[in-house]
Design a protein around this nucleic acid. Sequence first.
DNA 1: AATAGTGTACTAGTTTACTGATACAGTCAA
DNA 2: TTGACTGTATCAGTAAACTAGTACACTATT
Lengths: 134, 134
Amino acid sequence: MAGKPQRPFRFQLDLASGVPVYRQIIDQVRGGLALGTLRVGDQLPTVRQAAVELAINPNTVVRAYRELDLLGAIETHQGTGTFVSAQKVERGGAERQRQLDLMTGEFLARAGAAGFQVEEIIGRLEKIAKRKSI
Amino acid sequence: MAGKPQRPFRFQLDLASGVPVYRQIIDQVRGGLALGTLRVGDQLPTVRQAAVELAINPNTVVRAYRELDLLGAIETHQGTGTFVSAQKVERGGAERQRQLDLMTGEFLARAGAAGFQVEEIIGRLEKIAKRKSI
DNA sequence: AATAGTGTACTAGTTTACTGATACAGTCAA
DNA sequence: TTGACTGTATCAGTAAACTAGTACACTATT
């Protein structure tokens, strides 16, 4: 196991939020990846562990892990467990650009409708980028 | 009517995209607002016009307009029509900043999980901003 | 080889989401 | 007032989404 032994990642459910359980799991893994709480090689809770801990059906955990696996964020190994993958997501330039276009376009429409201008959004992102490079 | 008379906003459907029709309508209105294609006071196609033009049921248009109305993006007047609202979303600076933080943070987590870096996202947004100012 | 633990696959049941049909109520102009 | 046009409301049908139950297949350890 490439990752260091450490406290296992914990999921938390907000049943009042209306967000499907499997989606909450996905979002939490993604958040952990983006924030560095999860690192390459880290092991995620097993399907059964998570199911017991969250009092849900194992197949719901499977659903989340499967989607994360398809995204290339994690790797699942039958008999072994589920691990944060190397994140070497090699994607063709055109396909990748298209996805970026899609995500930014969608975000812009949403932020625009909430009254924000592109310029202030960029400003905010640049501030985050500065903080990140410290 | 506060807006200038001009060509009515047109919706376009992409039935192959898998995105629900009503959502496409919402997204297109929001996109129009963000890009300035739609301005305060502009009238949107009536429920029946849009339904006929898009070959869909009027209630599907109603669904979209209702959600946009709830968002405060438009105002619907029974017997009159549907208009882009004043968008005078008065929000305190701190509250507004907090929402911007929330939206950008969420977007970053998602984009980060998909493998994009802040810098390329900013680049993309700047390109859009340039196009807009032409 | 046996056992315990791992994820996978498949089916079924329930809930939610989406769209359509249609009647009702309001507005505006003639 | 009437008629045409406007959005609103309600119900119904269908598809999609979500979750659960359970057996199967693989891996690792003893």
